[in-house]
């Protein structure tokens, strides 16, 4: 039962990254691919109707972590206190930027929210990547199940660790480039005209940066947490997931040369899902890894609530998810087709 909830939680987080990831990504590349006011409106029409629903996956996953693994929720969120609160501020600013940007006709109003959207989207991606880096490397979780790490350090290798240090910032920039590419590919799919053309160009360049940063992050991970890879000795399926992920990734440039605009985006989705599922499969059953003592590590078994709570949760969760799938199919069908510049959405 704990293993099942670990998988469901990972699945919800992956759906969150894939869905909200494309609107974060669209925000990251926003001013680069959309230059004029009407192009920016076009881009915002592509993400405007869906960003809120995408972000609910974060809330639903947070709630699931809360009730299924309360100990890990308490430790993780209080340990990463400062970056999480800053992340919340950025999420607030980004939501307001998307919703309010086109509310008023003034140039200064637009410029302010355009800048806010891009600034917040970039930092959100970096912080998410850094938080993930912390989970992979492990944190100084103590015997009572809590930890605390400074927000940043002097950023030199081999100094003391921080939420933001050379390793986690590298992971953050890796995350930034992945989401930027993901967002650009989403725009290739959902827009036409100059925005689509610029997104194609940018996605090609970002694809190379993803390769470079993936390599650096991989090597650094070998240094800071060699133990991360050790479960792979007797686990095959994370490796299979990595292969699927790479297949998706290397399909992207081929697909970009073709004429079916959904395909490069699906390549990116495969890449992200495969990568995150492989990481979850490698980490299992660990939720928060302790660097002080392996016995302090919080796992799906040591951090979970009672079996009754997990069983009840499974019943309503299943019912809820059937409804959610129905909503999402309904919404995305209603929004099918490309968003064209100067044509408001009905």
């Amino acid at each position: 039962m704990q293993a099942l909830w670990y998988a469901l939680l990972a699945a919800m987080l992956i759906v969150f990254v894939v869905l909200d990831g494309f609107d974060f990504g669209a925000g990251i590349v926003y001013r680069f691919v959309a230059k004029t006011d009407s192009e920016r409106r076009q881009l915002l029409s592509a993400i405007g109707p869906v960003w809120d629903g995408n972000e609910v996956w974060l809330l639903a996953a947070g709630g699931t972590l809360f009730f299924a693994f309360p100990k890990a929720y308490a430790a993780g969120f209080s340990g990463l206190y400062m970056p999480l609160v800053i992340l919340l501020w950025l999420l607030i600013l980004r939501g307001l930027a998307i919703e309010l940007r086109s509310h008023e006709p003034y140039r200064l109003w637009h410029d302010f929210w355009d800048g806010t959207l891009q600034f917040a989207s970039v930092l959100i991606a970096v912080i998410f990547g850094a938080a993930f880096g912390n989970l992979v490397r492990g944190v100084p979780l103590n015997a009572s199940g809590y930890f605390s790490i400074p927000l940043f350090t002097n950023l030199l290798p081999y100094s003391w660790i921080g939420v933001l240090d050379y390793y986690t910032i590298t992971a953050g920039v890796f995350c930034l480039s992945v989401l930027a590419m993901h967002g650009a590919l989403f725009l290739v799919w959902k827009t036409d005209g100059p925005v689509r053309e610029r997104s194609v160009q940018l996605a090609r360049r970002l694809w190379w940066s993803v390769i470079a940063l993936a390599a650096i992050t991989f090597v650094l991970t070998l240094f800071v947490q060699p133990g991360f890879f050790s479960p792979l000795v007797d686990r095959v399926w994370p490796l299979i997931l990595v292969i699927i992920s790479l297949a998706g990734f290397f399909y992207i440039p081929t697909a970009l040369r073709g004429s079916a605009d959904l395909r490069p985006f699906l390549g990116s989705v495969t890449f992200i899902v495969g990568l995150l599922a492989a990481i979850a499969g490698t980490l299992f059953p660990n939720l928060i890894v302790s660097t002080l003592d392996p016995s302090y590590t919080l796992t799906a078994y040591s951090a979970s609530t009672s079996p009754y709570g997990l069983q009840v949760g499974l019943v309503w969760w299943t019912i809820g998810m059937i409804l959610v799938v129905f909503y999402f199919v309904f919404v995305y069908r209603n929004l099918s087709g490309k968003v064209t510049e100067g044509v408001p959405r009905e």
């Binding site: 699931t64 009730f67 100990k71 929720y73 308490a74 969120f77 209080s78």
Partner: peptide, 27 residues
Amino acid sequence: FQFGTNWAGFSNFAGGVIGQTLAMEGV
């Protein structure tokens, strides 16, 4: 998120119960 960031003691103590309704609200 503030339940976890600021009220970890409370979240750890009662999360198995009140986390249910918070997750249900999302879903």
